[in-house]
Simulated assay, not measured.
Amino acid sequence: MELLHTQIGSYRFVFLLIIFSAIIAEVVWNWRTERKAYHIKETLANLAIFFGHQFFGKVVFAGAKLFTLDLAYKITPFKIENTFWTFLLCFFLVDFVYYFFHWASHKTKLLWAFHHTHHSSTLYNLSGAYRLNWFGGLVNLFFFIPLILIGFSPTFVVGSIALNLFYQFFLHTEAIGKLGFWEKIFNTPSAHRVHHATNEEYIDKNFGGVLIIWDKLFDTYQEEKTKPMYGVTTGFVGYNPLKIIFKGFEELLKGEKSKS
């Protein structure tokens, strides 16, 4: 478990450097093209939520999450050897589990209470990619434990999840149009713009992480045809990070459920 924590931490700085460099590049693109994809208060809220998510995920919940993964690996009688090919298989299976987890996050009120945070922005840009609920780590981990119980190491599973989310970061932009053949197999900014839209024909579509083939297999794929309108169906939430984090739980307590 100690080794896993060290390995994850060693790549975090590189990931953060790439993430913030890409955001700065997109801000420059936004300014030069006058696309109005950024709003200063919205961006500050996104950054506050990002740093809060880092604190809760990497500090508050990190020990419990790594302990749970390590325990699952210790009790399973199966152990899959760590090789390049088994990592590719693990990455592929993580992406499939992510599709199911993402689908469930839209279809169930409890999981939507967590996921609401990510969809509540009315703008679509890279600063909102990690606009993730601070307490999501309490539930999402359990969807991936079965992969450890069948023998994949925690290092491979956690590494695959991290790479999956890192790829998805680059999907949250309007700066990239359609990508031709790539659209047939992989998730793209165009496909993910559909996922974040409140247009009636776009709601509950395109749940894939890295691969879009799951959506095509399970009939949840929708091509981007008309301009997406972003946010949730109940409207603008605000710029207060705490309100953004807890709005989904407020809906849950009231028995309501917005969509996106």
Rank of each mutant, 00 (worst) to 15 (best):
H172G: 04
F170A: 05
H196M: 08
A129L: 10
R131C: 09
K184Q: 15
H195R: 04
L147Y: 01
V139H: 01
H192T: 07
F101D: 01
E183R: 10
N187D: 07
E201H: 06
V139N: 02
D95E: 14
T155Q: 15
K205R: 15
E183Y: 10
G159D: 06
H102L: 11
V94G: 02
T188L: 13
N133S: 13
L149F: 13
E174T: 08
L89M: 12
L132G: 00
H115L: 11
E183H: 12
V139I: 10
A191T: 06
I176Q: 10
S121E: 04
H196V: 10
F114Y: 14
S127I: 05
K184T: 15
L179Y: 08
F169R: 04
F169L: 09
L111S: 00
R131W: 06
G128W: 03
H172N: 07
L138R: 00
F142L: 10
H195W: 05
L132F: 10
G151K: 00
L132W: 09
S190H: 07
H119R: 11
H119E: 04
F91D: 04
T122R: 10
L165S: 13
S105M: 04
T198Q: 07
L149V: 11
T117E: 09
F91N: 02
L126D: 00
F186R: 02
F152M: 04
Y130I: 05
F100N: 15
K178Q: 14
G137N: 15
F186Y: 08
Q168L: 06
T117K: 02
Y130E: 00
T122E: 15
N164T: 14
I161C: 08
T117W: 03
L110H: 07
I150Y: 12
S127Y: 04
G128Q: 14
W134N: 05
I185K: 04
C90V: 06
Y99F: 15
K205L: 12
H119C: 08
S121H: 03
W182M: 15
W182Q: 07
F143C: 01
F166V: 10
S120C: 14
F186C: 06
K107I: 12
N133K: 07
F169H: 12
